[in-house]
C-alpha cells in the first residue's frame, strides 16, 4: 500500500513538473534548458531513491535462490544500463549527442568488465575440452 502511495505521489509530481516546465518556457525561454536539466536530475534521483532502487533490492531477494553472483550481476547490469541510457537520452536531447555516446560506451565497458570473471571461467571450462 505504501508503495502504491509513493507511485501516486510520483505521478502527481510528474504533472506538477510538467506544468512548471511549461510555465518556465513561457516566462523565459533562454532559462528553460538549465532549469529542465536541473529538474530532470532532481526527479531522476528522487524516483531512483524511492522506487527504482528499493524495487531492485526486492527483485534481487526474489531471485536469491539462483547461484550466487548471477542474479545480482544481471539485475545490477540492467539497472546500470538503464540509468546510463536515460542520462544519454537527456544529454542528446540538449544536442550534445557525441559526448553522450562516449559516456554510454564507457558504461557498456563497465558492465562487460563486471561480467569478466564469469566469462573467463566459462572460457576455461570450454577450453578444457580442447587442451588436455
Amino acid at each position: 500500500m505504501a508503495l502504491f502511495g509513493i507511485l501516486m505521489v510520483t505521478l502527481f509530481q510528474l504533472i506538477v513538473i510538467y506544468l512548471l516546465l511549461l510555465i518556465v518556457s513561457f516566462v523565459s525561454s533562454s532559462l528553460r534548458p538549465i532549469i529542465y536539466a536541473a529538474i530532470f536530475f532532481f526527479f531522476l534521483s528522487y524516483v531512483g531513491m524511492t522506487i527504482i532502487l528499493p524495487f531492485g533490492k526486492t527483485f534481487m531477494q526474489l531471485f536469491a535462490p539462483l547461484p550466487d553472483p548471477y542474479a545480482k550481476l544481471l539485475i545490477g547490469s540492467v539497472f546500470l544500463f538503464y540509468f546510463s541510457e536515460v542520462i544519454v537520452k537527456h544529454v542528446s536531447e540538449a544536442g550534445y549527442e557525441s559526448i553522450a555516446t562516449i559516456a554510454h560506451l564507457a558504461v557498456k565497458i563497465a558492465i562487460l568488465s563486471l561480467w569478466l570473471p564469469q566469462i573467463s571461467a566459462l572460457i576455461d571450462t570450454l577450453s578444457k575440452f580442447i587442451i588436455k
Binding site: L66, P67, Y70, L73, L74, S77, W115, Q118, I119, A121, L122, T125
Partner: peptide, 10 residues
Amino acid sequence: MFLFFIVLTV
C-alpha cells in the same frame, strides 16, 4: 546472452 551464460556455466 547473459541467460545463455548462466545456463552454460551452471
